[in-house]
Amino acid sequence: MEKVIAGIQQIGIGIPDVHKATDWYRRHFGMDIKVFEDEATAELMLPYTGGKPHDRTAILTLNMKGGGGFEIWQYTSRTPQPADFDLMMGDLGINCGKIKSINVPGTYDEMEAADVEILTPLEKNPAGEYTFFVKDLYGNIWQVVKGREFFREKTPASTGGVVGAVIGSTDIDEARKLYSDVLGYDEVVYDETGKFSDMKGLPGGEHTFRRVLLRHSKPRQGGFSPMFGPTEIELIDVKARTPRKIFKDRYWGDLGFIHLCFDVQGMDALEKELEAKGFPFTVDSANSFDMGEAAGRFTYVEDPDGTLIEFVETHKVPIIKKIGWYIDMTKRDPKKNLPNWMIGALRFSRMKD
C-alpha cells in the first residue's frame, strides 16, 4: 500500500491539568468534540521518557469547523516539568500551534472581549493575511490564521482546529527534506529574512528571522481529510542568537507542545521513504495499539533539530460512542474520504456546560 497522508490529525500539548485545559480550549477555541479520553501507561515512548514507562491521561478534542485536534496530555505518575529557561521564538521544537479562523479580525475582537491573553496586535503576515498570537492558560502560544476551508461553517466558535505549527529550525533547507519532500509541503508561500511586525510582542520576536511558510499544493486524500482540511508549516530560523532545544533535559509529555501528528495510511511505505531520506522511526508501536476508544499503529521521527513528528495509522475510531458506532478503517480504500454525513456525526460527542 502506498502512503496516504490525510492531514494533521492533532497537536500534542503537555499540560498540568488535563480537564481544566480541556474546558478552557472548549470555551475559548471551540474545541468541543471529545473523541476519546484514555488513562494508560505510555510504555513505548521509552527513548523520550527516561527509559521508564509512565502513566498519563490523554483527551483528544476536535472542532466541527475542521482542522486537526488537540491531544491534551498529562502525566499522572510524575509531575510534568517546564523548561528551565524562558522559551523564545526560534528555539528548536514547536514554537506555536496554528488554529484557523473564519474571520481573523472578528476572532481578535472575541478573544479580547473574553480576556484571552493576546500577545500581538492584529497584523498582516508576509503573505498579506491577517494574523495574531495568543497565550492559553498555561502559557502555550497559538497563532490565529485565516482558514482556507471549513468542514462546517456554523459552529459556536469563530475558530476551527489545528492547521499547522511554527517550528524552530537551524537549517530550513535541510528540514524541508522531511516537511516538503516526504510530507508534501512543496509550496513556498513566502521565504523572507528580516524583522517582522506580526511577531512583535512574542518572546524573542524582535530578532531577525528567516521565515518560510509551506503549504501542500495537492489536496489531502483519505479518511478524515475533509475534516482536517489544508494545512501549513512555518519554519523559522533565528539569526541573532543561538536557539535552544525546547525539550532539552525534559521528557516527551512535559509541559508545552510535545509533537505534531499526521493521520496516515500505508505506514510501511512511509517508513521506507523516511529511511531513504534519513529519518528512521525512533518509536514504532508495530502492531495495533489500543487507546480504549480508538486503535491504530503509531510511529515517531525527529526532524533535523529533534522536533518530534508522530504518524498514526488509524485502525478503529469512535463516531458515536453512546451507541457503540466505530469505523474500521482497515476495510476502507485508504484514498477514499469518509462521507461528510459520517464525519458530521462526531457532533453528537459535543461537550457542553
Rank of each mutant, 00 (worst) to 15 (best):
E71Q: 11
Q81T: 03
D237I: 04
L44N: 05
K52M: 11
G194N: 08
A42Y: 05
Y25I: 02
E39G: 06
K322E: 14
Q265S: 12
H207P: 00
L119N: 11
H216E: 07
K34T: 14
L255K: 01
E187A: 01
R211D: 07
T208E: 12
R152L: 06
V116D: 08
R350G: 14
K124R: 15
M199L: 15
L183P: 01
N63R: 09
T242N: 04
I5L: 11
G160D: 10
D198K: 05
A40V: 03
A157T: 09
I167D: 00
Y251P: 00
L60F: 14
T282A: 00
Q143G: 08
D328A: 10
A165S: 14
P126Y: 15
D23S: 14
W24M: 02
Y185Q: 05
D263P: 08
M45D: 08
G50C: 10
E313Y: 12
E234N: 02
F85E: 01
E206C: 02
P121M: 13
I319Y: 00
G253C: 07
K218W: 05
S288D: 13
T57K: 13
D84M: 13
N103C: 07
D191Y: 06
D115Q: 15
V312W: 05
V264L: 13
R241D: 08
F281P: 07
P230A: 10
G223Q: 04
F150W: 06
P280C: 12
W341A: 06
F298Y: 15
S217C: 04
T307C: 13
I167C: 06
S349M: 11
L87N: 05
F247I: 01
E37H: 09
V312P: 04
W325R: 04
T193K: 13
M351H: 07
M329F: 15
E187W: 03
M267C: 03
L62N: 11
E174R: 08
G139C: 11
K245W: 06
Q9A: 09
T120G: 02
Y179S: 01
T231C: 07
A127K: 08
T107H: 12
I141D: 09
L235V: 06
E123S: 10
D198T: 05
G229C: 09
S77H: 07
N140D: 14
L308D: 03
V35N: 11
L260M: 12
L274T: 12
S180P: 04
D328C: 10
I309S: 02
D237V: 05
E234Y: 00
R26L: 10
V238M: 01
E271R: 14
K154S: 06
F133S: 11
I343V: 13
W24R: 04
M1F: 10
D86G: 03
M227T: 03
G160L: 10
P280D: 09
G106T: 13
